[in-house]
Amino acid sequence: MSLLSPFRTPWVDDPFAEAMRSGTGPLWLRRADGHRYPLDVERWCAPPDAADRTLLLRCLHRRLPTIDLGCGPGRLVAELQAYGLPALGVDVTRTAVDRALGLGGSALCRSVFDRLPGEGRWGTALLADGNLGIGGDPGALLARTAELLAPGGVLLVEVEPADLDDRVTVTVEDAAGRCGPPFSWARLGARAALVQATAAGFRPTDAWSAHGRHFLALHHPGPIR
């Protein structure tokens, strides 16, 4: 199957943007060797499920402003704001951000590596739904997340159930076989994620599983003065 495509920018001008508009899949991340990882579009576009609520409850318990990195269609940030918690979603896909805004959430169409509001002042950060893979360099992403958090801030991150550390080049593929442009991605289990997190100055405070999904809570003490 050809990887040639009229699309230009991953997540923006590829089948993912169309799926965010319709709220339906199926979609996959496709490696060059043909192996595919499913993207759970319908779950992301639905209200928060029981596993999501384990994240949301931790945010609500902390009662601190929360930033959702790679927020997609915004189910988490909209739910937090519905409970009165200051929250902001960030995503590079305009159709996803539009969907988040339509839910009543606050969201920006921007990369996590761009300048963002409240840098160094967020109490909690979220990297759910595989978003630890953003950019294909988890160490750089975790270091950037540390810059966004206030001293003592907490990152809640979803990790892969298997013990793996994959750095791959993928494309987004739809059911018709259309593919967007290739880009770098990563998939980390808990062990590999903790190695990268420790290097970025985080320390683990909790780990839990819910409905087949796996999560870590990572505390960041902030810069040493």
Rank of each mutant, 00 (worst) to 15 (best):
D165V: 05
G105M: 14
D165T: 04
G189V: 09
R99E: 03
R31V: 08
S2K: 14
A32D: 12
H61S: 15
T9E: 14
W185V: 04
A96C: 03
E173F: 07
G177W: 04
A143I: 04
A78V: 05
P223C: 01
R31P: 05
C109K: 05
C45V: 11
L64M: 13
G222P: 00
D68Y: 08
C109E: 13
A96D: 06
A96L: 03
L126T: 05
H61I: 14
L29K: 01
V112A: 06
L142Q: 02
H61P: 11
H214W: 06
D163C: 02
R30I: 10
L149F: 02
T24W: 05
D174P: 06
G152Y: 00
G135K: 06
D33M: 01
A207K: 07
G120F: 03
A100V: 04
R110F: 08
P161Y: 07
R94G: 10
R36V: 13
H219S: 14
G23L: 10
D13S: 10
P65G: 06
A96I: 08
L108M: 07
H211L: 12
E160N: 14
A143Y: 05
D137Q: 14
P223Q: 01
L188V: 01
A146Q: 01
R178Q: 15
V97W: 09
P182A: 11
S2F: 13
L116D: 06
D40T: 15
A125M: 03
F113V: 04
L69P: 06
R31A: 11
V154S: 01
F183L: 10
P138L: 05
V159K: 03
P182T: 11
A140F: 08
H35F: 15
G139T: 02
A143L: 06
L141E: 03
A51H: 09
L55W: 10
L132A: 03
L80D: 03
G152K: 00
S111L: 14
R110K: 10
L132N: 07
P15E: 07
E147R: 10
A32T: 08
C109Q: 09
L57T: 15
L27G: 01
A199Y: 05
A162Q: 10
A143G: 13
V97I: 06
A210N: 11
A78T: 02
P10G: 05
V77N: 12
L56D: 15
D129N: 15
A186I: 00
D33L: 00
L141I: 11
R30Y: 06
P117D: 12
W28K: 00
S5Y: 14
G104M: 05
A192G: 00
W185A: 06
V112I: 08
P138D: 00
G222I: 02
T124M: 03
R99V: 08
P10R: 00
A96T: 09
G118C: 13
L216G: 01
A46W: 03
P47C: 07
S2N: 14
E42A: 13
R94V: 13
A107I: 01
L4Q: 13
W208Q: 00
Q196P: 11
G34L: 02
R203Y: 01
V168W: 03
F183C: 09
R203Q: 07
P182I: 12
T9Q: 13
A176W: 12
V77R: 09
D129G: 15
I67G: 11
V170P: 01
R21F: 13
F7W: 15
G118Y: 12
L141S: 10
G104V: 07
R43F: 05
A199T: 12
S5F: 13
V77Y: 12
G84L: 03
G23R: 11
P138C: 00
G72H: 04
A175Y: 09
